[in-house]
Design a protein around this nucleic acid. Structure first.
Lengths: 332, 332
DNA sequence: GTGAAAGCGCTAACAC
DNA sequence: GTGTTAGCGCTTTCAC
């Protein structure tokens, strides 16, 4: 347990006062070259690092932001977090991760408490799922916050990836290929209708197409397989829009297992543009979502809030359709 | 900007002294039921949350751990981080993430500085790649630290997923199927030999098999495709061991594009057991790595260090072979 | 049990 | 420019 050097040690060693050391640290005021060098030398010799805790306490300017998320390892989540971290690091902030696993009030409260036990400059909430939605509501109002979301909502500043619009585009695309209607497999949690489902339904309604009952997949990769098999068994099914790429991959697999082929018999389209989507066979038609970019935009919005700059409260981007080989006109 | 309540406010409101509030907060000493209730009521009314910064400063007991990683969103990384976060949360710790993108000394230094600008209870380093290796070396010695790694190394406590052994097992398995030798595609960064390559080489040598020159893939999914095509063009190739599942998927795709089939013409085996591996066609034979478990084990080791408990400095687990359908005996 | 006093490592405000 | 003085919000003695 080597003793860690404090600012006092540095000051003594450099033969200056504590505030002078602080001045060279923060650059808040001019310091003569001689003293500055003495201080810098002392810092090096003692291998000194300022204590963030003391700093925050004295300056009341926290340099930590917290990301609250329902998951950290699934593709979109992980990428969004990466984007936030990148932007935060560039801005001199560090990021804490807190995961909130359910919508249970107590569990959410505990997560928020944990996050707020640090003095925080602000919070980024991944409003991708019900835990995220609930967590967002519980953030104390005095704290700068931004939501990362797929659905427009003006209650807090947000970085948006407009999935409702994108889902409409996807559905329109399938319709334009000549399909009578488009079936849909939802990703969990589908408690409230998500943007993808809303967009799909809207496009179908506008086109006057029949609106089939959506299927519900779980996060389990293999749940897609069962659904794919069911879909293949229904001769009316010629086009399927899946809530994400992983589900689409499972669905395709199920269709193939059932003896049909993609896209000859059934067109399948995913969502997200997962890195493996282009490697799939057939390469998956999908919607590219720039999650990392969303994370970066979210941090920028948050920084504006933190610094009290008035300005945009919304940074919106439209995911775009990537047509590959899992979609084709219907064979009949 | 609502004013945030401090412990002094709570003390006043409850009609007790500040230390008494502290006592009910920390449970460090007995407080009479009456005062305890008064304090608890005041806390609720004022919506008070203790300041972590002040707490750390006064108690010198940080409750934050930092995860330092070269990446946060790729499968194994994201899962390992999830495991650490889970275990940390259960233990009352919060986790900060710092990514170090290169081995550049200055960049590494900056990352470590950022991480250490918080008062840290300890550090978990994802020693999966060169940035991780370098970062690990730069952690100040007085700080508890554990490495998450695939290669045994006794310099610091570590949670190990013994990939060298696993790679030997994979190679032996392919050889036992009747293949003359096994080709290998490495994942980046392959600067120094990784455990997977070492194990592969060792098994081949022991079996007296020819040791072909390994191929180097990039993180780009499609780099696997080109390698797959090259492999397919070589009639001597009947079995390929890929450094991870994503690469294996690309390689399979390349082989198929080149007109050969898996496993009839060439067996392919991956590493990690990516969630999509079982959905691939053919379902991928691979090695299951419990990254989240590794993260949890790593945190446990770290906690032991933090609490000064002597004990194991190594928590080792052997990844296990998962045989699916991308491997078969050679056709000739 | 409980309060008064001291102090954690730093920055801010104010002299000089 | 530079030092002195306060004080950030807590926990930790140490009396009582």
């Amino acid at each position: 347990m080597t003793k860690v050097a404090t600012i006092t040690d540095v000051a003594e060693r450099a033969g200056v006062s504590v505030p002078t050391v602080s001045r060279v640290l923060t650059g808040a005021a001019k310091v003569s070259a001689a003293k500055r060098e003495a201080v810098e030398a002392a810092i090096l010799e003692l291998n000194y690092r300022p204590s963030g805790a003391a700093r925050v306490l004295a300056s009341r300017r926290p340099m930590v932001i917290s990301v609250i998320a329902g998951d950290t390892s699934r593709y979109g989540y992980a990428e969004a977090i990466r984007g936030v971290e990148e932007a935060a690091r560039a801005g001199g902030y560090t990021v804490m991760i807190t995961v909130v696993e359910s919508t249970d009030a107590e569990e959410v409260e505990r997560a928020i408490d944990a996050a707020l036990s640090q003095p925080l400059a602000g919070v980024v909430v991944l409003k991708f799922d019900p835990p995220g939605v609930v967590a967002l509501q519980r953030i104390p109002p005095e704290l700068p916050v931004v939501a990362l979301s797929g659905i427009r909502d003006t209650s807090v500043p947000q970085a948006l990836l407009d999935e409702t619009r994108a889902a409409e585009e996807v559905t329109d695309f399938l319709l334009s290929l000549g399909h009578r209607t488009v079936h849909h497999v939802r990703v969990p949690p589908s408690r409230k209708e998500d943007g993808r489902t809303t967009g799909w339904r809207r496009a179908l309604r506008r086109a006057g197409a029949e609106i089939p009952e959506p299927f519900d997949a779980s996060w389990e990769a293999r749940s897609g397989i069962a659904i794919g098999e069911a879909l293949a068994a229904d001769a009316d099914v010629t086009a399927v829009f899946c809530g994400n790429d992983e589900i689409a991959m499972g669905v395709i697999r199920g269709i193939v297992i059932a003896g049909k082929s993609v896209p000859a018999d059934i067109s399948v389209i995913g969502f997200d543009d997962h890195p493996l989507a282009e490697l799939w066979s057939p390469p998956l038609t999908t919607v590219r979502q720039d999650f990392a970019g969303m994370g970066r935009r979210g941090f920028d919005l948050l920084l504006a809030e933190i610094e009290g700059r008035e300005g945009r409260r919304l940074s919106s981007e439209r995911p775009r359709l990537v047509v590959r080989e899992s979609t084709a006109p219907p064979s009949r």
